[in-house]
Design a protein around this nucleic acid. Sequence first.
DNA 1: ATAGGGTTAG
Length: 699
Amino acid sequence: MAFDPTPAERGVYHGGRLKGAECTWDAKGSRVDNVVVLASRGVGASCRCPTMPLCRPETCSSGNGGESTFLNLLFIKGGRETMFIKSASVSMSNEGTTYSRPKGNIQFLNSVPSFQPSGMDSHHPSPEYSSLLLAGPRAGALKQAHARIIVTGHSRSLPFITKLATLAVAAGAAPYAHLLATSHPAPDSFLFSSLTRAAAHHGLPVAAIAFYRSLLSAALPFSSFTFTAVAKACADLSAIRTGTAIHAHSIVLGFGSDRFVLTSLLVLYSKCGQLGVARKLFDAIRDRGVVAWNAMISGYEQNGLAERGIEVYREMQAAKAVPDSMTFVATLSACAQAGALDLGREVEKRIVSERMDISVFLGSALVNMYARCGVVDKARRWFDALQERNVVTWTSMIAGYGMHGHGHEAIKLFHLMRREGPPPNHVTFVAVLSACAHAGLVMEGRDAFDCMKRIYGLVPRVEHYCSMVDMFGRAGLLDEAMQFISDYMPGEPGPEVWTAVLGACKMHKNFILGVEVAERLIALEPENPSYHVLLSNIYALSGKMHHVEKVRNTMIKRRLKKQIGFSLIELGGTSHLFRMGEKSHPQTTEIYQYLEELIHRISAAGYMPETESVLHELEEEEREGALRYHSEKLAVAYGLMMSVGSTTPIRVIKNLRICGDCHLAIKFMSAVENREIVVRDKHRFHHFKDGKCSCLEYW
DNA sequence: ATAGGGTTAG
């Protein structure tokens, strides 16, 4: 059959026979033993333009393209077998033409009956199209399929080229795909849109943006598909500036109210932390699909605004929109973050009653929700019941044990994972090490750290070093913590590591080292209020009250505000938020009265306020009674007051670490009220029962 | 004739 080369191909043919080539070919390309040249110029290695990685040299203004031309050669041998020799390249420059011989062995990739072109059949894809599908996202096989397409005369067919190029992108070969697109005599909008989408979906966001620009410079029409894809690429890169430009472009071209485009832009803004804009877009979507709802819930959740995400879920119910499994995954994550156990259970009921298929995502979300809402055994029951478990599922469960101080369970599960689960990753080891730190399992932690490097080849990151230092520190092994830092940590330790050391100094009352470390931290990040608070804590503990004053004054002078603590309690599906000294709750008077009585009763039982916990408060009036009205005490008192006579545990979530005095007081409360009280603080769970806490003072 | 849309777990 006749071979009708594209202009790019023709240019190569005119170049004549390539010296040194081991194959012969003719201009018709109709015979066996031919070399088909897939040609273009200045793509890939020859054009290293930083602004437009995939631009053509002639449109590249940076001036560093177009000096040499690379040719990719496809060697084709006809007959019953198709043979592909690793692509060779020809470089043509002012110094002359050089030819590099193909390296490697001749590969017989697949057998094909013949090179006879066949007509397209809508019911049965042609052998050429089949060979594309068969090749899948593998660069080598695709090049071979490509050779076939050229020889059989389909190289101008846009469906073929589009399929080929999108598969090439999926194989990670974006430059090759770009070459295919630009060497086509008349590439269309669909082709570039498909490439943009493929690149955005296969972790090549930079290439996706480049394809979008190709479309722009080729003056081809845009479609909403292009925008959904390129918006995703920007979202993945957190490229808010490019993203905003694309947003504007989409409006100019009349896609401003397309729900797909709007949803993808919603995700863009939410991934860039601009939730206000995201919400505006969400509100602007008429007939919003389930995906928009899901994106909004997840957007809030990912940005730490789980309560807002839960509100959106409620709105969704009110709007009678039909949720899908992703809705539940996102909502369960929000529940996990907010500690909204009631809603989590409600979602679980829906999932079960609707006989929904429990995917790994949904299953992990359930495990995670129960673990982080303080019901570890339920988390484990789901974990055991799941059909499919992956590294995230295992890690969630291990982290769940760790958070509750069940270090041995965490280690046991980790060993089980090593035997019959997926290979652990970085996050798994954070969970394992932190479980060891919270349970005082120093030896096990050391083993895990060692095995992480030796067996799994994982390079420890800051968070692993922190966990190790934290572990030594909590166990009172400050010398070993310092030794570990100097022996194992490459480079200068960052503030995170020193914070861990400082926490240990505070816990074990090592004032000299503590002050030194705190001052180092303040020098490192003078604007961070938490270091000042830690320093003043250290001074307070060592009785140097004039130093406390000094730190306090520095903070006031620099306008540094300590992070405000709050506690949440969920009752009857609504969550109530308390801040220290909170007086805005409608039942304020009763709550304070109840708390007073409670304090009276626990004092009778032997409770003595731990005054040192209050010394870091900044304002005088905050000190007055601050200890009595810490947010966690208010929340617990409210919970007890509202459920007198009940036996269900009281559950409270605190955003910061629980303070020493509250910890003591709640232990007493659990005894005098004979109630189980569960408090989740920033780092872990505390299960109070019969005057004891599950953390065994280890936090 | 013909090749597709936006969202998920630690």
